[in-house]
Deep mutational scan, measured.
Amino acid sequence: NQASVVANQLIPINTALTLVMMRSEVVTPVGIPAKDIPRLVSMQVNRAVPLGTTLMPDMVKGYA
């Protein structure tokens, strides 16, 4: 199973992502692939993302 990107903490709306905010985990449904973590750094979330939430492409500005 492919690992997805999961929030390692509460990420407030419009926050630029950093490595410490994200972890990889095998979850259902599948979200953004963990291999894309380096690409996500500095991108902003367009909503508040609670701890443990799988990041989906529509949550990150400029990803999709």
Rank of each mutant, 00 (worst) to 15 (best):
1 N>I: 13
1 N>A: 11
1 N>M: 12
1 N>T: 12
1 N>Y: 14
2 Q>V: 13
2 Q>I: 15
2 Q>F: 13
2 Q>G: 12
2 Q>T: 13
2 Q>D: 08
2 Q>A: 08
2 Q>N: 05
2 Q>H: 10
2 Q>C: 04
2 Q>M: 14
3 A>D: 08
3 A>Y: 12
3 A>R: 06
3 A>E: 08
4 S>D: 01
4 S>N: 00
4 S>L: 02
4 S>V: 02
4 S>T: 04
4 S>F: 02
4 S>Y: 03
4 S>W: 02
5 V>S: 04
5 V>E: 00
5 V>P: 01
5 V>R: 01
5 V>G: 02
5 V>N: 01
5 V>F: 02
6 V>L: 05
6 V>Y: 02
6 V>P: 01
6 V>S: 03
6 V>R: 04
6 V>W: 02
7 A>Q: 00
7 A>R: 00
7 A>G: 03
7 A>P: 00
7 A>M: 06
7 A>S: 11
7 A>Y: 02
8 N>L: 04
8 N>E: 11
8 N>S: 14
9 Q>K: 14
9 Q>Y: 11
9 Q>D: 09
9 Q>M: 13
9 Q>I: 10
9 Q>V: 14
9 Q>F: 13
9 Q>A: 08
9 Q>C: 03
9 Q>W: 09
9 Q>R: 06
9 Q>L: 11
10 L>E: 13
10 L>M: 13
10 L>G: 10
10 L>D: 15
10 L>A: 15
10 L>T: 09
10 L>Y: 14
10 L>H: 07
11 I>Q: 01
11 I>G: 01
11 I>W: 02
11 I>P: 02
11 I>F: 02
11 I>M: 05
11 I>S: 01
11 I>E: 00
12 P>N: 09
12 P>E: 12
12 P>C: 05
12 P>R: 11
12 P>T: 07
12 P>K: 07
12 P>L: 09
13 I>A: 10
13 I>H: 12
13 I>D: 13
13 I>P: 14
13 I>R: 10
13 I>N: 12
13 I>W: 08
13 I>Y: 07
13 I>F: 14
14 N>I: 03
14 N>F: 09
14 N>W: 14
14 N>Q: 13
14 N>S: 07
14 N>C: 04
15 T>C: 04
15 T>H: 09
15 T>G: 07
15 T>N: 05
15 T>M: 07
15 T>K: 05
15 T>W: 05
16 A>S: 11
16 A>R: 05
16 A>D: 06
16 A>I: 11
16 A>V: 06
16 A>M: 12
16 A>Y: 11
17 L>S: 01
17 L>D: 00
17 L>I: 13
17 L>F: 02
18 T>D: 07
18 T>F: 04
18 T>S: 07
18 T>V: 05
18 T>I: 07
18 T>K: 08
19 L>V: 12
19 L>T: 06
19 L>A: 12
19 L>M: 08
19 L>S: 10
20 V>H: 07
20 V>C: 04
20 V>N: 08
20 V>G: 15
21 M>H: 12
21 M>W: 02
22 M>K: 00
22 M>V: 11
22 M>W: 02
22 M>Y: 02
22 M>Q: 00
23 R>N: 07
23 R>Q: 07
23 R>L: 07
23 R>A: 14
23 R>I: 06
23 R>M: 07
24 S>K: 10
24 S>L: 10
24 S>I: 14
24 S>H: 09
24 S>P: 10
24 S>G: 12
24 S>C: 03
24 S>R: 11
25 E>S: 07
25 E>F: 07
25 E>W: 07
25 E>Y: 05
25 E>N: 05
25 E>I: 08
25 E>M: 06
26 V>C: 03
26 V>L: 14
26 V>H: 12
26 V>Y: 14
26 V>D: 12
26 V>E: 08
26 V>P: 10
26 V>T: 09
26 V>K: 09
26 V>Q: 08
26 V>N: 14
27 V>C: 04
27 V>E: 02
27 V>Q: 06
27 V>M: 07
27 V>Y: 02
28 T>Q: 13
28 T>P: 01
28 T>Y: 14
28 T>R: 08
28 T>E: 15
29 P>M: 06
29 P>V: 06
29 P>I: 09
29 P>L: 04
29 P>F: 04
29 P>A: 05
30 V>P: 13
30 V>F: 10
30 V>N: 12
30 V>G: 10
30 V>W: 07
31 G>I: 02
31 G>M: 02
31 G>D: 01
31 G>R: 00
31 G>P: 01
32 I>K: 01
32 I>P: 01
32 I>L: 06
32 I>N: 00
32 I>G: 00
32 I>A: 02
33 P>N: 11
33 P>H: 12
33 P>W: 06
33 P>T: 11
33 P>F: 06
33 P>S: 10
34 A>C: 05
34 A>S: 12
34 A>W: 12
34 A>Q: 06
34 A>K: 06
35 K>Y: 15
35 K>F: 15
35 K>L: 09
36 D>Q: 10
36 D>E: 14
36 D>N: 06
36 D>F: 10
36 D>C: 03
36 D>T: 06
36 D>K: 05
36 D>Y: 07
36 D>V: 08
36 D>I: 05
37 I>Q: 07
37 I>M: 10
37 I>Y: 03
37 I>F: 03
37 I>C: 03
37 I>A: 07
37 I>W: 03
38 P>L: 07
38 P>N: 15
38 P>Q: 10
38 P>Y: 09
39 R>Q: 09
39 R>W: 08
39 R>L: 11
40 L>M: 08
40 L>F: 02
40 L>A: 00
40 L>K: 01
40 L>S: 00
40 L>Q: 00
41 V>M: 13
41 V>P: 03
41 V>T: 09
41 V>I: 13
41 V>F: 06
41 V>H: 07
41 V>W: 03
41 V>G: 02
42 S>W: 07
42 S>C: 03
42 S>D: 10
42 S>A: 14
42 S>T: 15
42 S>F: 13
43 M>Y: 07
43 M>C: 03
43 M>A: 06
43 M>G: 04
43 M>L: 15
43 M>P: 00
44 Q>N: 07
44 Q>G: 05
44 Q>T: 11
44 Q>I: 08
44 Q>H: 11
44 Q>K: 13
45 V>Q: 00
45 V>Y: 00
45 V>T: 14
45 V>G: 01
45 V>E: 01
45 V>L: 09
46 N>R: 09
46 N>L: 15
46 N>H: 11
46 N>V: 13
46 N>C: 05
46 N>G: 15
47 R>P: 02
47 R>N: 10
47 R>T: 14
47 R>H: 10
47 R>F: 06
47 R>V: 12
48 A>L: 11
48 A>H: 12
48 A>Y: 11
48 A>T: 13
48 A>W: 10
48 A>M: 14
48 A>D: 12
49 V>A: 06
49 V>P: 02
49 V>Q: 02
49 V>D: 02
49 V>S: 02
50 P>M: 07
50 P>I: 08
50 P>T: 11
50 P>C: 04
50 P>Y: 10
50 P>N: 15
50 P>G: 14
51 L>H: 12
51 L>D: 13
51 L>W: 14
51 L>N: 14
51 L>V: 15
51 L>A: 15
51 L>S: 10
52 G>F: 05
52 G>W: 05
52 G>E: 05
52 G>H: 15
52 G>C: 03
52 G>L: 05
52 G>S: 07
52 G>A: 08
52 G>M: 06
52 G>D: 12
53 T>S: 15
53 T>C: 05
53 T>K: 05
53 T>I: 08
53 T>A: 10
53 T>N: 08
53 T>D: 13
54 T>Q: 03
54 T>W: 02
54 T>K: 04
54 T>S: 04
54 T>L: 05
54 T>M: 04
54 T>H: 02
55 L>P: 00
55 L>E: 00
55 L>T: 01
55 L>A: 00
56 M>F: 11
56 M>Y: 11
56 M>E: 14
56 M>W: 06
56 M>N: 06
56 M>Q: 12
57 P>K: 08
57 P>Q: 15
57 P>S: 14
57 P>W: 08
57 P>G: 09
57 P>F: 08
57 P>N: 15
57 P>M: 09
57 P>D: 06
58 D>F: 12
58 D>G: 11
58 D>E: 13
58 D>A: 14
58 D>S: 12
58 D>W: 07
59 M>E: 03
59 M>L: 05
59 M>P: 00
59 M>G: 03
59 M>A: 10
59 M>D: 15
59 M>K: 02
59 M>F: 13
60 V>G: 01
60 V>A: 02
60 V>W: 02
60 V>F: 06
60 V>T: 01
60 V>D: 00
61 K>E: 13
61 K>H: 15
61 K>F: 13
62 G>I: 04
62 G>M: 11
62 G>F: 09
62 G>T: 06
62 G>N: 13
63 Y>L: 07
63 Y>R: 03
63 Y>F: 12
63 Y>H: 05
64 A>H: 12
64 A>G: 10
64 A>C: 04
64 A>N: 14
64 A>E: 14
64 A>L: 15
64 A>V: 11
64 A>R: 03
